[in-house]
Structure formats: C-alpha cells, structure tokens
C-alpha cells in the first residue's frame, strides 16, 4: 500500500472526501439457477398480482354476473380437466395455427419481395409506400364482408385476413434495415465493382436481418389474433379457436371460453418467442441488441 498521508481536515469549508475504495473481484458468470431466478421471478410475481386482482374484481361482482369471470377451479373442472375438451382444444388450435401460419407465410414472402423491390427501384418505393400506409389504415374487419363476397367461406379468405393484419411490418422493417447500411460499406462494394445483387446479398440483407426479425415478431404475434378474429366471421364447418369462443358464448360455457382465450395467448406468445429465439440464434453473435437481455 502507499504511504501517502491523508491530509487532515483543515478548513471549515472543506469536507474531506477521501475514502478507500475497495476493488470488486471479477464477477463469476451468473449461474443457471441465478439466471432463471432473475428472469422468472419478476414475471411470476406479476402474474400472481394479476390473479389476485382478478379474484378481487370477481368477488366484487354480483353473483348473477360471476359467470363472466369463472373461477380457477371452474376452468379446471369444466374445461382443462376434461380430456375430450382438451383434445378438441388442441384440434382447434391446429386449425387456427394453420390459418395463422399460412397467412403469416404469405405476408413474409410477399413482404420481403416487396421490401427488396422497393429498395431496388426508388420510383417503386415512391409508388408503393403510401398505399402500404393506406392499407394499414383500412380497418380490416370492415372489409370482411367484401372478402366473404369475393372468396366465400373457406380457408383462403381467413388466410387473407391474417395476411392483411400482418403484412405491413414486413416490407417496412425490411426497407428500413436495407436503407440503413453504412454509406462507406456500400462504397467499399462499389470500389470492387460489385453488382447490385452481390451488394444486397453480402451487405444489405445481413445488415437488415435484425430489423427484419423485429418486424417478424410483431407480425407473428398479430397472426394468431388475426386468425381467431377472422374465424369469428366464418362460423360454418369445423373451425378453430375463434369458433370455439362463439360456441362457448352461445352454449353459455364461459369456462371453455376462458380456456380458448388462454390457449390463444399461449399460441401468440409461442409464435413471438419463436421469432425472438430464431433472431437470437442468427444474430446475437454480432448484433448487440439481439443478444440475451440482462
């Protein structure tokens, strides 16, 4: 240690501000359990609060309106505890997911092509972009009757509704990402006479990846909601979760309605997490924001 003398506190106006500062040893990487605790405890606490709030609101309802908020035991006994119902729930989830995934697939493939085309040709960007915004501002539900008249009541009209819900985020985030490539990186490619296509593949697309995946997660979490919404308008035939919601209301089975709602959230979250996971896998080694959140 040094033997510098710590000066005595001489003046009235000067407070000695000298302390010894201890070093912090290099922190060991957080253990798995610790990571689980920091990542899981807050949402679990929040969830318990929500459940308590639910119970509190429910207890305040007059008895003849308590069916609006079924109890946990009710949801178990009349929905999740019944194997046949669970099977039906799963079957209907598959139906809904088929609509959601097909619609999302359409959005993603057309959206990516459109994003790239707008990036390539400025005049197409100028031509298309305003209408993308217009499309986004059209209330999709308001044109459902039109879609029904045009496409009937099968699978495709529902897929189209999902596509309309989820389209916007794809070409816009892709275009944003493609355009934000560093000017000098483009110059670097230009100096080697790289073609537009090579520049796109080796510079712009990888650069746009993280932004695009943010768009995918937004679209993805909308897709399930959109699929269920679309089903509310198409009640004929063997349907998905949306149809179950309507049936539950008609049959006064609110426990089943809640079960369907829970299932819908689970699916939505699953789609969102899937894209988040995929984005992490693809980009976290070089893109800081895609890295694991602390």
């Amino acid at each position: 240690m040094s033997d510098t003398q710590i000066p005595a506190d001489t003046g009235k106006h000067r407070r000695a501000n000298i302390e010894s500062h201890e070093a912090t040893p290099v922190a060991p990487p957080p253990s798995v359990t610790r990571r689980l605790v920091t990542n899981l405890v807050p949402p679990i606490l929040a969830g318990i609060l929500v459940i308590l709030a639910y119970a509190w609101v429910r207890s305040g309802l007059p008895p003849h309106r308590q069916f609006l908020m079924p109890s946990g035991t009710g949801i178990w006994e009349l929905a999740f505890g019944i194997p046949d119902f669970v099977l039906e729930l799963l079957r209907r989830s598959v139906t809904t997911m088929a609509i959601a995934v097909t619609g999302l697939g359409l959005s993603i493939s057309f959206g990516c092509v459109m994003g790239i085309v707008m990036f390539r040709f400025l005049f197409l960007e100028k031509a298309i972009f305003p209408y993308l915004v217009v499309l986004q501002s059209v209330p999709v539900l308001a044109i459902v009757p039109l879609i029904q008249s045009a496409l009937g009541f099968g699978f495709m009209p529902k897929v189209l509704i999902v596509a309309l819900f989820t389209f916007f985020a794809v070409p816009t985030t892709l275009l944003l990402g493609l355009k934000s490539v560093d000017r000098n990186i483009l110059n670097l490619f230009k100096l080697q006479n790289a073609s537009w296509w090579v520049t796109l593949r080796k510079a712009c697309l990888p650069f746009a990846g993280p932004t695009l995946f943010a768009g995918f997660s937004i679209s993805g979490s909308l897709a399930v909601i959109a699929a269920i919404t679309s089903e509310l308008f198409f009640l004929s035939g063997e349907g998905g979760l949306g149809q179950l919601l309507m049936n539950a209301k008609i049959d006064f089975k609110y426990e089943q309605m809640y079960a369907a709602l829970i299932m819908a959230s689970v699916l939505s979250i699953a789609v969102y997490l899937f894209f988040k996971w995929l984005g992490n896998r693809l980009f976290s080694h070089w893109h800081e924001a895609s890295g694991k959140q602390q």
């Binding site: 000098n184 990186i185 080796k202 980009f283 070089w286 893109h287």
Partner: peptide, 20 residues
C-alpha cells in the same frame, strides 16, 4: 472508420474484397 462487416469474423472481413 474501419467499415467492417460486423457479422463477419476478422478472417472473413479480410477476405471480403477478394471474394468480390
């Protein structure tokens, strides 16, 4: 600035122009 491609390792960054 160095204008490296962040998704390429040092080796692949140095190879870039030769690749082009």
């Amino acid at each position: 600035d160095a204008t490296l491609l962040p998704w390429r390792k040092v080796q692949d960054n140095v190879e870039l122009l030769m690749e082009l």
